[in-house]
Design a protein around this nucleic acid. Structure first.
Lengths: 219, 219
DNA sequence: GCTCCAAGTAACTTGATGGTTACTTAATGG
DNA sequence: CCATTAAGTAACCATCAAGTTACTTGGAGC
């Protein structure tokens, strides 16, 4: 009997599915507790697999963490390349993205904290992605969407700061804003603010003319 | 024999000194490894005291963490009240402060990550301090140093973002800037950038006039 | 059907770690 | 002096958690 293939998805043994389950469960646990705080047993329980399989596929807790970070990173990067636009749009867009994908922000935060100032996990690809990002900023400078007076690296660092900070420090944000970061009202309000604030990246001349236009229209 | 008081500082038993040693050691260990990652034995070793004393004074690891946070917080707040000034100055100032006192940034980061969205540690005092900070921003708005069009809360959140982010995410900063956060060259450069960038907080009219002046002078 | 390997399981080991017990000793005040 | 209390020590323990051992079983190819 050649068997009807393997009745896809209903076989008892299913390495890929198991791997994915582990990765997804690990993402959640690592985002929640970090690499030191996460419990291997908890990951196994959440993934509904035997703990041994985790070592089978990933060797160690650290190995698993690396793989989780790598996976999430590649997902995001593939996704990030697609969009471009003026700072006003991308600022608020990335801010909202950070609020929605707090797992990612937290993963980066855990990475920041453990950092035994050793080599980064996917250093090479991350460098490449960063370079591409800087290039996109330069293009926008040419197009006049961003002031050419500003160093692209500083622009990028500034944008990252503005978009990620609230999700990274929810307790401070709440203290300042009086609302939890998860509150849609806060997110909306902040997005609006960032759109206005994005003018800071525009070249002085652009900014002046647009402001003057808007004001003269009113008058 | 009435004994020469207690030959201050050289007595064998010295509760205050012990307490301080523990707190200082704990600050270091907690900043380095977080609450879950820090080893009580490591704290005891670093403080050169017996582990038992730690429990004698602080009850538990968490209790110790709370006390450390509280102490550091009160130190900083007392210190923060002193200075005021225009955004250009305070932005770069607080940025440099964050780079220098990474322990503090990391402590806040650990707090952000553990946050079982429970009540904050020194909530009351922190709320009060935040309110005072917002008040100072309003004063600067009145004085015209900050645009009155901007919501003080958003201004504050933005300033915090800009000043703390690099110290909070050294790995990202390094990726973007090509230099470690600890590099004085980076710090200087960023401080200069922030001084320029602080113009974003000034009211449009102010900005326009100053820009126009500068440009017309050239022309 | 049979073999063989990867997928999967349960129970165990080993070491670390937060917290404790049971004790000693310095200072203080009457 | 002496009693009492707080500071300090060393050895211990229960627990928890990462990683392993030793085993079973599904399924693909022959």
């Amino acid at each position: 009997m050649a068997k009807p293939a393997k009745t896809p998805g209903v076989t008892l043994r299913n390495p890929e599915r198991t791997r994915e389950r582990i990765l997804f469960a690990a993402l959640k646990e690592f985002a929640m507790s970090g690499i030191a705080g996460a419990r291997v047993d908890a990951i196994a329980r959440r993934a509904a697999i035997n703990k041994r399989m985790l070592y089978h596929y990933f060797g160690s807790k650290e190995g698993l963490f690396r793989e989780v970070l790598r996976l999430k990173m590649s997902q995001r990067q593939a996704w990030a390349e697609t969009l471009s636009g003026d700072p006003a749009e991308s600022l608020s867009f990335w801010f909202e993205a950070a609020c929605k994908d707090t797992d990612w922000v937290r993963l980066l935060e855990w990475e920041a904290l453990q950092e035994a100032d050793q080599r980064l996990i996917d250093q090479k690809e991350r460098r490449a992605a960063t370079t591409r990002g800087l290039e996109r900023i330069r293009q926008r400078q040419v197009r006049g969407q961003i002031s050419s007076e500003l160093d692209p690296r500083h622009v990028m660092l500034t944008m990252r700061s503005l978009t990620m900070f609230p999700a990274a420090f929810p307790q401070l944000t709440r203290l300042i804003m009086g609302r939890p970061v998860s509150d849609p009202k806060f997110q909306k309000e902040r997005a609006v603010f960032l759109k206005k604030f994005a003018a800071a990246f525009q070249s002085p001349t652009h900014r002046i003319s647009s402001k003057l236009n808007r004001q003269s229209r009113k008058a």
